[in-house]
Design a protein around this nucleic acid. Sequence first.
DNA 1: CTAGGGTTAG
Length: 611
Amino acid sequence: MMMIRSNSALKSFIGKTPLLYSAHTTFLASLIHSNSSFSSNASADFQQHSKSKYQKVANLNDALNLFDQMSQQRPFPSIIYFTQLLHSVTKMKHYSHSVDLFKQMCALRVPVDKFTMSVAIKCCCQLYRTNDGFAILGYCFRRCIVPDDFIFSALLDGLILEDRILEAEIFFKKLIKDKLCEPDVVMYSTMIKGLCKVGNNVIAIQLLRLMDERGCKPDVVVYNNIIDSLCKDQMIDDAFKLFKEMVFQKRIPPNVITYSSLIDGLCNLGRWEDASKMLQEMLDVGISLDVHTYNILVDAFCKEGKIEEAENVVDIMLERGIVPDIVTYNSLIDGYCLRGELAKAKAIFDSMVFRNIGPNVVTYSSLLNGYWKNSKIDEAMLLFHKMNEKGPKPDVITYNTMLWGLFRVGNCGAARKLFDEMRAKGLKPNECTYRVILEGLCNNHLIEEALSLFHLMGDSKLNSCIIVYNIVIDGASICGKFDIAKALFQDLTNKGLHPNVRTYSVMISGLCREGLVGDAKELFYKMEESGCAPDNVSYRVLLQGYLKNKHYVDVEMLLHEMVGRGYSLDATNVSILLDQIAAGSFDNTLIELIGKLVPKELMDGPNFSLK
DNA sequence: CTAGGGTTAG
């Protein structure tokens, strides 16, 4: 059975590079040969028996009914039972109901204690209402309840959830300085998570060292936080350094999350063979893949366009008794969308209902994204309509997707309306929203509006972002306002921002568009000096500038450099070069040089017969 | 004696 599937997978790889093929196969092989993972639930069952009925409520309704009964008894049942019930509701993630029950308890004068407070604070924080959490902390002080690590951790976590990292840091330091508590491993881990969240891996590692020095031994969760963050930032070598430190120096056994993070990091870098090795290592040390790990693999295959492989992984999951969840199906939808197979994506979307998995906001957004990327305007509009009628509530990402699509088809008016609508619904546009709008306006030649929006952002985080600058600089330059582009380029350094490769490429392209080839060349060689090496795109842009401005003297040198760096030409370059060859502008040595720079994809095209 | 906190996937 498995062999047949592997063979069909094999077919899909014919024509691809052998390395990729074997890496994928090994990858699958290690999946196939791994042990089935039917873990014993004996201990869980045992624990079930010792649990009270307040801890075992199956759903929200039961919990609410039970609460009603309890609140009518006199005297009140033990606060322990109330708190257990509250905790059950919290574990079901019905945080707002939990807070509600807590409020009722207070109103009924049920003698709430530290444990109750702790659950209530936790719920406020998870609802992005950390300020309310702090209000309950004040209530604790008034009631002479001394808050403990649990309460402080919940508050710290809330600040981090709301991206209030600076406040989190101040709070954390204050706790230590005022000796309100000595942070334990969970609190350190939470603070470290926050630092990682804002990309401050270096400080996170410093805190890891500090906690060790202060006598709080880091555990696998602390390491996982940093390892995952490093993986997400594509700093996989650092991640492995930490991994080895954890395993060999600290003797902390990695868990399924450690491996999953590393495998995810490797897959995102396209390092299939290494990912495969890690998967094997994980199985060798006796850790089975869980639904998250499988989902990472499904997602990785989907992102590579290897849907057949992804489907194989799903089959393996099913065979092993691991039920694919909404994340699995969302990845598959993404994968089919990426390949332009919208009917397949829609089929999965529709099938989810039968599997008792209701499509969530991610599912809808993915399919919408697929429709827009493939120019299925009507389908996108219809699906969005359906979503508003009877689907999950669209979130910022949904709106960003819609805005992107509307701008792409040039419907700036509808985009405007939708933007107003999203704000009317109380959704806060994020950085991505502004990028989408700026780019949309620029691409539709509405540079004035883009600039006024850009200036409207003032000195916020939003326009102190190099990506945003790149968009506006490019937009201004495309719209013939190169003086503005130049001013913006100056402006960003004044703000202490560093131009990146893209910024330089955009500027070089702009200079060339203005016919200022000399300046373009100067900037091109300056960027390397500034520690920003030109990439393939920079070369292609400059070459295009040289050619379009008939600046032939530097072409040969540039081509040689491109060969040296292993770069290649794009379709535009090749097309102009072919014209020039036909016109006799280049001699034979140059034609040979060009031949080395034409990528295989372009060679196969019917328009290019360059040998 | 019974109760509470942190890690992976758009």
